[in-house]
Amino acid sequence: MPKKKSDSSVTIAAPPEPGSARLTEQSAAPSRTALLREMLLIRRFEERCAEAYALGKIGGFCHLYIGQEAVGVGAISALRDDDYVIASYRDHGQALARGVPPRAIMAELFGRSDGCSKGKGGSMHVFDRNVNFLGGHGIVGGHIPLATGVGFAIKYRGGDQVCLCFFGEAAVNGGAFHEALNMAALWKLPVIYLIENNRYGMGTALERASAINDIAERACSYDMPNEVVDGQEVFAVREAVMRAAQRARNDHTPTLIEVRTYRFMGHSMSDAVSGTYRTKEELEEHMKRDPITLLRGEMERHGEWSDQDMSALDEEIKGIVEDAWNYADASPEPALESLTEDVYVNSEL
């Protein structure tokens, strides 16, 4: 039986008018340099995280974003400051792109009191209320219904914000995904569900876990607009999320976006980079499409960029990351009294 695509899946809203009142500066087209900068910040930040993990400064599970930088950066560049972002445990990149200070994230990873979650959450649980970053969540698929709930609250209050929800391709096989998308479509909620399809769960390839390979098509069950995007092209991601945000703001329609990307590292710092589940050759092939290299190439073609510019930028970014490291290292451990704080909020009636 041919797979029926819902009509809505081909709907592509017109790109936003420049200067539209609805758009804040953040979603007014950023320069290539601005996006490159953010991607490079994530890359260098994650590289230092790997070092810190090896030194035992970061513990537990630590999932890096190397290879996927264009996804978080492109997608979040399409949002307004008053929109919401929610992510899985692979959350450093989205948090940085959203503007959570590198110092606060690094201090969180080091388990220190100046961390954005006071050292209680760690790598998988970056939260920052100041920038509407609703967390890193550790149970696969568990936060997808939360995004639907945020969409519900936006509609309830009559707002025109959107909620952008990041999760991996393996999460679409679980019940939470389906329940959440059905309600969002049924109730017309302003949510953008963004699948970061990096081809693998821990060690299970997409084809070994999902009955269909074009996972964006899962949206058809809910008559939800959907599209597939090249996740190594930061502007492609940005534009897809802009279209979805328009749909969400203008008529509260949710969208499912499948972003095809690849992780260059192991699933987490405790897992092998390649091995029984993927070959080194496959990895090397994908690394040829490094999102940062692709954007740089693009800039060179436009005569916007020289190697000198690049090394200056890189030095600057390394400085920011170094500063975050030093800040985290100097931050005190959480006070022992804090162990029993924040279990309940004070609620005297």
């Binding site: 388990g111 979650s117 959480p334 029993t340 279990v343």
Partner: peptide, 16 residues
């Protein structure tokens, strides 16, 4: 275990 969700920080986890 102390009556709290498990914290991440090494010292707090040890205490819990």
């Amino acid at each position: 275990q102390t009556d709290v969700p498990m914290p991440y920080a090494k010292n707090l986890e040890r205490a819990a």
